[in-house]
């Protein structure tokens, strides 16, 4: 299991990625993800797929309609829509 982190450490790591130009509509904070695959299975647009590290990744980011179903259904609050409207 990866090292546990506090929400403050999570926030710092995420903001770091944003600063470095992260521009996808959905963000996955991997340390909290337990690879349950719920988000991938129930994304209405099949945007997500499991990566080699068994964490979700955005395979088809352009198809994302920001419906937040992944965010609502993640038992670990590890995935969320980070960009409200497409640029």
């Amino acid at each position: 299991m990866a090292k546990n982190t506090t929400v403050e450490e999570a926030r710092a790591a995420i903001e770091q990625d944003f600063k470095q130009g992260y521009d996808l509509p959905v963000y996955v904070y991997k340390p909290w993800c337990k690879s349950c695959e719920i988000c991938v299975a129930f994304c209405p647009k099949q945007v997500l797929e499991m990566g080699e590290d068994r964490k979700p990744r955005l395979a088809r980011p352009r198809d994302c309609i920001r419906c937040r179903q992944c965010e609502l259904r993640c038992p670990d609050l590890a995935i969320f829509v980070c960009e409200e409207k497409a640029k």
């Binding site: 929400v7 999570a10 690879s35 719920i38 590890a78 969320f80």
Partner: peptide, 26 residues
Amino acid sequence: MKIHPAYEMLRPDKNFPNVWCPGCGH
């Protein structure tokens, strides 16, 4: 870019992820 809105309601100094099994609905 916006961070998960629920994070502000999580206990700041508690270690995550939570104790529940992968895929548990809790």
